[in-house]
């Protein structure tokens, strides 16, 4: 590089006027089968990245990101669970030596020592030897740490009630029932039905939401007449014709089957529109609750 007297610059800048050609270095003099990062190695890295990305996208499409219902701080029964990579910490706090009066142990001391040691590893293990089998203490402690993390995560997953977790926090699909339908009017006269399933048919003291299960008209009639599970039969008061109208109304997800509005035989577009409206309404409700 030219230095000192006689240096030329571009204009009045500090950029030297003398151009150097941009020719890659020759790696043949480096030891072994060395290759250039650009473009040889990066191209291969790029291909590994592409394969990785495909796997990643397949995972993304196969398992949509979960979303539960909007946060409700007044819900006291909710069993919380952190994301999986914090489970080992969460589990640690369940053991006697790290809970209650010793929470400081589980929350600060044990993780602090572990991560502090990780941070200071170069000074805790200051020897020149790099091979892991030549420095058994460091290697042993690291393996112990990894096994503890895997064990604690495993225990946490094992002890968590996944079935209960699946039930809680679900998004409730708000249904819109056609209250002008003949079936709905018939239902309103059935005190026995209402006493368990509620006046809005959405479930009540003893019975579930009527529309929860997917039965067709004949099955609904059969259930009303003969009962199912804890539900007794023969509670319906009215003619067979009324029974059939009610059953058709229930089987048609709360829409009047005679209107051709939704249902099995109805046109699908209407049904879709109905569902979207429901979503919108549900969101509004959720917002109202927050206010």
């Amino acid at each position: 590089m030219h230095r000192g007297k006689g240096m030329k610059f571009v204009g009045d800048s500090r950029v030297p006027a003398e151009r150097k050609p941009n020719i890659p270095k020759d790696y043949s003099e480096y030891p072994g089968k060395t290759e250039a990062f650009w473009p040889n190695f990066l191209l291969r890295e790029w291909m590994v990245g592409a394969v990785f990305l495909i796997g990643f996208l397949v995972l993304t499409v196969a398992h949509p990101a979960p979303l539960e219902t909007i946060a409700d701080p007044t819900e006291t029964g909710y069993v919380p669970l952190p994301d999986w990579y914090f489970l080992f910490l969460y589990q640690l706090l369940k053991y006697e030596f790290a809970a209650g009066p010793y929470t400081v142990m589980g929350a600060v001391v044990i993780p602090g020592v572990a991560f502090g040691a990780l941070l200071l590893a170069p000074w805790l293990d200051g020897g020149k030897e790099r091979r892991f089998y030549k420095r058994p203490i460091g290697t042993g402690l690291m393996i112990l740490g990894v096994i503890s993390i895997i064990f604690l995560t495993w225990e946490s997953v094992d002890q968590h009630d996944w079935e209960a977790a699946e039930q809680q926090g679900q998004i409730q699909e708000d249904m819109e029932i056609d209250e002008s339908a003949a079936g709905y009017e018939i239902y309103q006269t059935q005190d026995s039905c209402i006493s368990c399933h509620g006046g809005d048919m959405m479930g009540g003291a003893a019975g579930p939401n009527i529309f929860e299960s997917d039965y067709d008209t004949d099955e609904v009639i059969d259930i009303i007449q003969n009962g199912i599970g804890e539900m007794p039969g023969d509670q319906f008061e009215g003619s067979d014709e009324e029974l059939e109208t009610l059953a058709a109304f229930i089987a048609n997800d709360g829409q009047d089957p005679d209107n051709g509005d939704g249902g099995d035989g109805g046109d699908d577009e209407d049904e879709d529109d109905g569902e979207e409206n429901n979503d919108g309404e549900e969101n509004e409700d959720a917002g109202d609750n927050e206010e």
């Binding site: 539960e68 219902t69 909007i70 946060a71 701080p73 819900e75 669970l81 952190p82 926090g169």
Partner: peptide, 13 residues
Amino acid sequence: PWDMKAYFATVVG
């Protein structure tokens, strides 16, 4: 996302 599990995981955290 401010859903149930988000909120209660943060409470615990």
